[in-house]
């Protein structure tokens, strides 16, 4: 299935992109796949990010559906 992913707060990845995952994959599976393709710093940021799936908060156990839109919101951390 295709998952639409978009990062907020990480300028190295500005545009949305698609990720292919097997049916039944979870939020945790998506994050693991993203981490494999990330720099060390991006991996750390992924661990601190708030994940929104469509318009709901995402959790590691959330089962994803085809064409779900996932927002990865990197914290500002102050300012």
């Amino acid at each position: 299935m295709e998952i639409m992913v978009k990062y907020f707060g990480l300028e190295s990845i500005q545009e949305g992109f698609e990720v292919i995952l097997p049916e039944g994959a979870t939020g945790k599976d998506l994050l693991e796949k993203l981490k494999k393709e990330s720099t060390d710093e991006e991996k750390i940021l992924l661990d601190t990010a708030t994940i929104m799936i469509n318009e709901d908060k995402g959790y590691p156990g959330t089962v994803l559906k085809d064409r779900d839109r996932v927002l990865i919101l990197i914290p500002l951390g102050g300012g």
């Binding site: 300028e11 708030t50 914290p75």
Partner: peptide, 19 residues
């Protein structure tokens, strides 16, 4: 990134994350 965009670079993410 902070040097490039300033703290306002984080406003979109914070607006959506609940921060």
């Amino acid at each position: 990134r902070l040097g490039e965009r300033g703290t306002g670079g984080g406003t979109p993410s914070a607006s959506l994350s609940g921060d």
